[in-house]
Each structure stands twice: as structure tokens, then as C-alpha cells.
Computed example of a mutant assay.
Amino acid sequence: MKQPDDCYFYYYSNCSKGAECKFRHEEAARGSEVTCRLWKEGKCFHQGCTFRHMIIQKDRSQIPCYWQSQPSGCQKQHCPFLH
């Protein structure tokens, strides 16, 4: 079965739907900024694919993390922004 698109909220914030969410929640892909080539072709069937199943518009690794500059710092384990 083709793997679904990534859940935006799971990857960049917090998805409140959990297991009820129809989008993909893949822990192994959380830190990746590489879009899956097979997914773009509609051919990714790998259950634990470590690449992103969404189009990434910006290179977040070059954008400073807003939360890192706050008193408590960034608390995200897989924050894609520059620290």
C-alpha cells in the first residue's frame, strides 16, 4: 500500500489526533529534510521510510530557530531549524 503524505503538525509542532490522524507519523523521518523520491512518483511502499512524504519549500536548516533565542530555549528533539 502506498504511504500517505506526512502530517504537517506531527513534523513541525504537535498532532492532537494521534492514531486517528489520516496522515503519516514516522518517527524515523522527523529529522529529515529530504523528500522521498519514490513518494513523489507515487511508488513508496516502505512502511518505515526515513525520507519526508511532503514537499519541502525552504531549507529550514539555514533559518534560525525562533525558540532557541527564548529564555527556555528550543525543546524540540528534531527541530529542523538552525541552532
Rank of each mutant, 00 (worst) to 15 (best):
Q62T: 15
E26V: 01
K43P: 01
H78W: 14
E41A: 09
F9Y: 07
G42W: 03
D5L: 02
K40S: 13
G18H: 03
E33L: 08
E26T: 06
E26P: 00
W67Y: 15
C36Q: 02
C44M: 03
P64W: 10
G73K: 06
R30S: 02
E20K: 05
K40V: 12
Q75L: 14
H46P: 00
C49G: 05
F51P: 00
V34N: 05
F9D: 08
K22N: 08
M1W: 07
G48H: 13
H78P: 01
I55W: 06
D5R: 02
R52D: 02
I63M: 09
Q57V: 12
I55E: 15
D59Y: 06
K58A: 09
E33T: 05
C21Y: 07
Y8V: 03
F45V: 13
Q57R: 15
E26W: 00
Y12R: 00
P80Y: 00
W39F: 14
F23R: 11
S32V: 04
C44K: 05
G48Q: 11
E33D: 10
H53T: 03
H83V: 08
C65Q: 10
H78I: 03
A19H: 04
M1V: 07
K43L: 07
K76I: 07
C79K: 12
P64I: 09
D59N: 15
E20D: 12
G42S: 09
T35K: 10
K43M: 06
C21V: 02
M54L: 13
D6R: 03
S69W: 08
D5G: 04
E20V: 02
F51W: 13
Y66K: 05
H25N: 06
F45L: 07
Y10R: 04
Q68L: 09
C7N: 02
S61M: 07
R52T: 01
A28D: 01
C79Q: 10
Q75I: 13
Q3W: 03
S32G: 04
L38H: 04
C7M: 02
G31Y: 02
K22W: 04
Q70V: 09
G73E: 12
F9I: 00
Q75K: 15
K76G: 07
I56H: 07
E41G: 00
K17N: 07
C65Y: 11
T50A: 12
Q57S: 12
M54I: 11
D59C: 10
Y12C: 05
S69N: 12
K43F: 00
H53N: 08
T35N: 07
I55N: 15
C44A: 06
H83W: 10
Q70S: 14
Q77A: 14
W39K: 03
P64V: 11
A19C: 03
S72D: 15
P80A: 00
P71T: 07
Y66D: 09
C36V: 01
M54V: 08
S16M: 10
N14Q: 14
G42V: 08
Q75D: 15
R60T: 04
K76N: 14
L82F: 09
F45M: 08
H53E: 11
H83Y: 13
N14Y: 15
T50G: 05
